[in-house]
Amino acid sequence: GAPPLPPYSAGGREVTMKKGDILTLLNSTNKDWWKVEVNDRQGFVPAAYVKKLDSGTGKELVLALYDYQEK
C-alpha cells in the first residue's frame, strides 16, 4: 500500500494524480510535499508518492507510484 501521508505543510493547493502518471516537477525544496504540474494544473503531491525520472530533456519529471486524491 501507499506510505503514510506526511502532515500537510506545503501551503498551496494539492493536485490529484493516478498511479503511472508522468508529472513535471516544479519544486522539490519541501522534503514532504513536491510541487508538480499535471494537465496544466499546478499543485502539491506527497514526495513519497512519486519517483524522479531521468528525462534527458532538462525538464524534471516524476512518476506517480500511487493514486493521490487532493483533499
Rank of each mutant, 00 (worst) to 15 (best):
K35Q: 10
G1R: 06
D40Y: 09
R13C: 13
V50Y: 00
P4Q: 09
L53F: 12
S55A: 11
Y49Q: 03
L61A: 05
K52D: 04
Q69P: 15
L23Y: 09
V36D: 00
D54T: 13
T16P: 12
G43M: 06
L26N: 03
D54M: 10
L26Q: 03
A2V: 13
T57H: 15
G58N: 11
A10F: 10
P7G: 08
A10K: 07
K19P: 04
T57R: 10
D40S: 14
G12C: 10
T16Y: 10
P4M: 08
E37K: 08
V62E: 00
K51D: 07
L23H: 02
T29C: 09
M17Y: 02
L63V: 14
E37T: 06
L5P: 10
Y68D: 00
N30K: 04
G11D: 14
K31C: 07
M17D: 00
D67K: 02
L5M: 09
A48K: 11
P7H: 12
G58M: 08
L5S: 07
L5Q: 06
N27W: 05
K51A: 09
V45G: 00
P7T: 05
D54P: 15
W34M: 03
V36G: 00
K19T: 06
K52Y: 08
G43E: 03
V50C: 11
L61W: 10
A48Q: 09
L23K: 01
F44H: 04
L26T: 04
L25H: 01
Q69E: 13
G56E: 14
Q42E: 13
T16K: 06
V50D: 00
R41C: 09
R13H: 13
G58E: 11
R41N: 13
D67C: 03
A10T: 13
N30F: 05
N30G: 10
P6V: 02
P4Y: 05
P46E: 01
V38L: 15
K19R: 11
L26G: 01
E60T: 14
E37P: 01
G12T: 06
G1M: 09
P3T: 05
E14L: 11
N39M: 12
W34S: 02
K18N: 07
T57F: 09
P4L: 08
L25T: 01
M17W: 03
L53P: 01
K71G: 15
L25N: 01
S55P: 10
G11W: 03
L61S: 07
L53Y: 08
L65A: 03
D54I: 11
V36R: 00
R13E: 13
E37F: 05
L63P: 00
Y68F: 15
V50W: 00
A2Q: 11
Y66E: 04
E70V: 11
V45R: 00
D67G: 06
P46K: 02
W33L: 01
K71Q: 15
K51P: 01
R13G: 11
V38D: 09
V38T: 15
M17Q: 01
V62Y: 07
D54G: 14
K19N: 03
Y68G: 00
